[in-house]
Design a protein around this nucleic acid. Sequence first.
DNA 1: AACCGGGCCAACCGCCAGTTC
DNA 2: GGAACTGGCGGTTGGCCCGGT
Length: 294
Amino acid sequence: MGRAPCCDKANVKRGPWSPDEDAALKSYVETHGTGGNWIALPRKAGLRRCGKSCRLRWLNYLRPDIKHGGFTEEEDNIICSFYSQMGSRWSVIASQLPGRTDNDVKNYWNTKLKKKLMAGKVTLKTMSDNLSTLDSTPSLPVGQRAQTHNLAFPAGQTQSYSRQSILTDANSGFNKTESLSLDPVQLYGLAFVDGSEFGETSRNNHINVSMSQEGSSISDSSSCALDKKYLSLPENSEAEAIEDLMDFGFGFHYDLVNGLYSQDKAADAAPCYPELADLTYDDIQLQGLNQNLI
DNA sequence: AACCGGGCCAACCGCCAGTTC
DNA sequence: GGAACTGGCGGTTGGCCCGGT
């Protein structure tokens, strides 16, 4: 049996919210709360809207602590830093930016920040820079980060990272993690490459792609030696090479090195990067599993 | 003035995971 | 144990706005 729709689409209003609807929703939620049931809320509030739509409207626009307006440079840096570590986990990134929603961050990234980054107006922080930023930024003390992550990832949900392979050269970051009391998400972030790896790229003309264990076992894997697989890049500059890969839809190095590109994408890139055509997500997963078995 | 294209962003869609019964 | 249901998430879309021609 298929899943029942969350609402009767024929009888709900769609499209932009009117001021009256906003007022009705705001008034209801402020008076009664959500009652833990968004699906039933629109009926109780006298709205002809889908419950999901109400939830989204409240969370992204009507909530009193929402911050409207442009992003600051500090916010830019935080977004870039976290994106480089964990990719498009917009809810996690937004949780680091008080008053910002995942939708805001996602839109901002897709429309502006990515272009700023490519234009060199913003730089991806190295992991060590990131650590120092986080540890020195009053709004992001280590303890608070852990608290935020606990909210974002209740017990047991760390498994949601399991499909993402972790990239590391097995030397970067882990020493620091031992001195910090980190939750799995933080450890996950620390396991990723930092800018120095691109420095290495520019020196030996390789992107260093390491296969590692599943995210769910990160906490046990800090000392594991990780096999490496090298992808040769054409004889152009590092920036050009990365930009070319992005043109193929690979996204940032996070996406490339974590195997989060599809076989189709690899095939698209094959004329220029034949090595990529043979490297599928399944290959990477298999390689990672093999490493676990050794 | 009319048209066009790009930027921006609110809203929707579909999927997944957790919870309830 | 499994079906039904809900919340949450990331990706995508559609429409408005604005500047250029």
